[in-house]
Amino acid sequence: MEFLLNEDRLALAETVRDYLAGTHGPDVLRRLDAGDNRDPAIWQGLVNMGLTGLLVPEEFGGLGLGFVDAALIARECGRACLAEPLVDTAFVAVPWLLSQGDTAQMAAIVSGTAKPSVAHRINPWVSDGDGAALDSIDPLRNLTRPVGTSSSDPLLLDLGALMSAAQLVGLAEAMLDQSAAYAKIRTQFGQPIGAFQAVKHQLATAAVAIEFAKPVVWRAAQALSDGLVSAPVHISHAKVAASDAAIQMAETAIQVHGAMGYTYEVDLHFWMKRSWALSGAWGSRAFHLKRIDDAVIGGGLEIGPDQTFA
């Protein structure tokens, strides 16, 4: 029993964090938003880091890592508000295709030439698909109506929900940092607004929600890796906790930014819009609560102090 993200994992995530911080800042989001939302050079950069092959077995040229590693990278994608569909392709479609025994596209995914996203009955739209474009509040999602059939496999939904939860954690963390930074530079009544307890306490409350969403996400990722029968419940828990933290953080962030937060000029809106999108994606809050309800109140899951890791 060791609930610890080891240093190798964190080192990889930090490398990705630094890379995205250096190459994928708000200026890039603005450039993409003014253009056609995508830049092949960004995708190639992710491919060069091996991220498209993170979950692809080594025999197909990938890194062969696991869901906890992928969740940590997905968190960084959220933190950077990454426009490219890395998570949909590499952390959702890849493991699902592997579970179906479908390895045909693996080498092409690793090399960056194939970018599959798989739709689900409950999550019918995909990023960068072949079909008609949809008008999302977050244009950088490049959301499309898929041409092909969609799956109703619960594993696909679980993968999508888990990786959305991980991105939501990163989105929330980024909004917390942006809001704290703004509260330090914006002055009123002769002092930074961050010196006022009314501002401090809102940010602290959001920080609590983020702090206690994180371990739920890591636990869910490990439960899926370990093949626990209860993994879907823990993934639903992660999705609800991360969505709630991100939405609370987004609402706090715009409040702290004041009227500036309502403008296109301040960067916050990119992260807010992604948070709204991912909170509903891969199963709504109500859907995931229902799964928790069936397990916890319905009695499908052992609960109590001695059942922490049931």
């Binding site: 609930f3 739920v216 109140i297």
Partner: peptide, 28 residues
């Protein structure tokens, strides 16, 4: 009320995970 009950379970579990994570951090 049902949602409040589920929230209780979720938050008690989250607190447990967090405590296990802090314990592991201290042990390391």
């Amino acid at each position: 009320a049902r949602e409040a009950v589920m929230t209780a379970w979720m938050q008690a579990q989250a607190y447990a995970y967090n405590t296990y994570a802090v314990a592991a951090k201290i042990m390391a």
